[in-house]
């Protein structure tokens, strides 16, 4: 299953709710303001690292760039995708859960 999150983790706890539901083998994609969840040195780094291996984490590149961020700002184990990559994730996963 693909999970998308679009809110900053500092604004809403969608990330922790999502992680309660993301099973082994799931993918999580951060878009819009949720891209801040993948940056280095935040209180959310640990949650991402603890789940890495079971869950694959992705971030939408154009949303990252729009916010003045790039690969060098990201914590480890996050893969950057473009919109085509986003489409592929939706197509490759039978179901998508959008944690609004």
């Amino acid at each position: 299953m693909l999970h998308t999150i679009n809110k900053s983790p500092f604004e809403k706890d969608s990330l922790s709710t999502c992680l309660r539901y993301a099973d082994k083998g799931a993918s999580v994609l951060f878009i819009e303001d949720a891209v801040y969840a993948c940056t280095k040195g935040t209180q959310f780094e640990k949650a991402i690292h603890d789940n890495h291996g079971d869950i694959k984490f992705y971030v939408l590149g154009p949303d990252l760039e729009a916010r003045g961020l790039d690969n060098s700002n990201l914590t480890t184990n996050i893969e950057i995708v473009d919109y085509k990559g986003f489409v592929k994730l939706v197509a490759d996963n039978e179901k998508t859960q959008n944690w609004l």
């Binding site: 819009e32 919109y83 986003f86 489409v87």
Partner: peptide, 14 residues
């Protein structure tokens, strides 16, 4: 976001 997604989906043949 939806617009960009749809545009990419169409380009990918969906």
């Amino acid at each position: 976001s939806a617009y960009k997604f749809i545009e990419a989906a169409i380009e990918e043949g969906h």
